[in-house]
């Protein structure tokens, strides 16, 4: 069995408009190890959601997968390149919502307002099998109990509007987990929730993931959430992965100046400080990408003549095994250490 459940190789996704081609995802390459949680992080517009939507082939016109492979290695030993399938390929229907399930950000819009909770959940079972009605109902009620819904028999007959936001997100999780998926894609699953509810939902996802041994691709912008639940992290900026590694490597000793800057600008980490370190400038649009490294105009370590010309830097593996896309990858450890030192003494 392949140790990875999902391997994405040089994925390219573009959106076509009158203004031209916007490369939302550019040569993205990462793998989700079986039974682990990989977090794909970045700010709005970096392409993290588009990447996750591509896996389930949910990209619609004017968007298109223009290159690369999305390899799904099932536990039964079969492998399929999802990027190569036609939109009506039966294998896609077998995988989508069954072997790979997805949790969406908005628990308000992810559920149908005119069907009962029970009905919506059973639909998953009837779509991917032919269970008897009573059996389906029993499985749904059992799953509702497992995601921590009190009085599941009563909730089974209720409509989404009768539940709070946190409850609805549990329903969405129950729906995704019903088919015991091998891979769960969670797109900002707790962003719309209050902090106490977020903690509950994250704890729930974690315990379900451990129980069932499924793998998770977590899409988020919140580095604190990443630190709490992820095993591996890939950081995206402007459609590219700029750095990836274990959660400890990325959060404790980031190597790419962008990752470093993101972590620095988290408020409240260091108690009250006079000034919050921030990354200067703003994210450029996809139509006016700078030459060279896409991050160089905002980077404190950009070198003239090196970082600002030619193609963006390819992923490099440094001598100590770190993976990042930076022209100065080898030097970064030293440069960042020097800067952090200067800040503490200042």
């Amino acid at each position: 069995m392949n140790p990875n459940v999902l391997e994405i190789e040089d994925l390219q996704v573009s959106f076509f408009s009158d203004e031209g081609e916007a490369r939302a995802v550019n040569k993205v390459r990462f793998a989700v190890p079986r039974g682990k949680v990989l977090a794909l992080v970045g700010e709005s517009g970096c392409g993290k959601s588009v990447t996750s939507y591509s896996v389930l082939r949910l990209i619609r016109k004017p968007g298109k997968i223009t290159g690369g492979r999305i390899l799904f290695h099932s536990a039964d030993g079969s492998s399929v390149d999802l990027a190569s399938l036609r939109e009506n390929d039966p294998r896609l229907f077998d995988i989508r919502g069954n072997r790979i399930a997805m949790i969406f950000q908005e628990p308000m819009t992810a559920l149908s307002p005119v069907h009962t909770i029970g009905n919506q959940l059973e639909e998953v079972l009837f779509t991917h099998g032919k269970p008897a009605k009573a059996e389906a109902k029993a499985r749904v009620i059992e799953m509702l109990g497992r995601v921590g819904i009190p009085a599941p028999e009563r909730r089974y007959a209720q409509y989404p509007f009768e539940l709070s936001g946190g409850m609805r997100q549990r329903i969405v999780i129950a729906m995704a987990m019903l088919s015991s998926p091998e891979l769960l894609i969670a797109d900002e699953p707790t962003t719309a929730l209050d902090v106490t509810i977020q903690a509950q939902v994250l704890a729930l996802m974690q315990s379900l993931q451990r129980e069932t041994g499924s793998s998770v691709l977590l899409i988020t912008h919140d580095l604190a959430v990443v630190a709490q639940v992820a095993d591996f992290v890939a950081v995206m900026y402007l459609g590219r992965i700029v750095e990836q590694g274990s959660v400890r490597e990325i959060i404790k000793s980031p190597r790419h100046p962008y990752t470093h800057g993101l972590l620095e600008s988290l408020p409240g980490l260091h108690g009250r400080r006079e000034r919050l370190p921030s990354i200067r400038g703003t994210v450029p649009g996809l139509f006016d990408l700078p030459e060279g490294c896409p991050f160089h105009p905002r980077c404190d370590f950009a070198k003239k003549g090196l970082c600002d010309r030619g193609e963006p830097p390819p992923e490099q593996v440094t001598s100590d095994g770190r993976r990042l896309c930076c022209f100065r990858a080898e030097e970064m450890a030293e440069l960042l250490k020097k800067r952090d030192g200067a800040e503490t003494t200042a």
Partner: peptide, 24 residues
């Protein structure tokens, strides 16, 4: 305390997700 304890900490070595019961 509940509110402060629920806020995730950006530190992978301090994983403290309390399964808090109850709703607002």
């Amino acid at each position: 305390r509940l509110l402060l304890g629920s806020a995730p900490i950006p530190d992978p070595d301090r994983r403290t997700l309390p399964p808090n019961p109850g709703e607002v």
